[in-house]
Nucleic acid binder design. Structure first.
Lengths: 123, 123
DNA sequence: AGTATACTGAGAAATCAGTATCGCTTGTCA
DNA sequence: TGACAAGCGATACTGATTTCTCAGTATACT
């Protein structure tokens, strides 16, 4: 991640503009509108580099390959639209799950995923 | 899933006895104590059959291959021990996440995963 | 007990996300 | 501007998981 290339710029822009966790394939599709020749290998390379330098984080959802979002956001969770497949960020968090823990278990972190219809796919 | 075989019995027993979501590899290891010749293909075939007939359900956690647990339990969530890697069932649920939904989004279901140390791995 | 056939185990093959390779391109810096 | 190396795109490869294949085995039914 030393040089400033059209490809990397396009990928960063796409992630900032769409502002939701994107799969490598989604990044490829969106960034190709800016750099049509873009290859999937460059997307993977760049995402990996962004994560290594701390600019992006991987978002893992059950049964799904990792998606990526820009880092620096505060604690949040995700919504997975069961119709269009897009993942969105959610604000807020119930916060305390310790009442669910059996004796002797210690929780360090948690993940919440809501599933349903996003605005565009609403019935 | 028509015949009653030692292999299938062993797999069902293991799932009932351990009573937590098990990966195919975990099922294989545990069931081989009952039927040492058991092969991984039979584990996959049997798990698939159990899911199809409704006796088991797949449990998907972020970044993990599916695990399987017997069905018929009431609404619950899971705890993933970051030390030993085992997954446990948790009772209870905060229930209402609608306050997290943006305008126009509709939630149908949710998943919660807690990460930390289980009793055996506690510090 | 005899028989049809569902089931099994081992290994090959399929799947698929992600990575490595390599010749060509392009950003950076003197 | 020239040169060097980082970066690119295409594609072959990898590794992990799951499914398929097939010859031999075991179950269920008569």
């Amino acid at each position: 991640m030393e040089r400033f290339t059209r490809q990397r710029q396009a990928i960063r822009e796409v992630m900032a503009e769409l502002d939701r966790p994107l799969s490598p394939a989604e990044v490829l599709e969106a960034a190709r509108r800016k750099v049509p020749s873009l290859g999937i290998a460059t997307v993977y390379r760049t995402l990996k580099g962004l994560v290594e330098e701390g600019s992006a984080v991987a978002v893992e959802l059950p049964g799904q390959a990792p998606r990526y979002e820009l880092s620096g956001k505060r604690h949040h969770h995700h919504f997975h639209c069961t119709h269009c497949g897009k993942v969105f960020e959610l604000e807020g968090c119930p916060g305390d799950f310790s009442f669910m823990l059996p004796q002797g278990f210690q929780a360090e972190r948690h993940e919440i995923v809501l599933y349903g219809r996003c605005t565009e796919c609403g019935v």
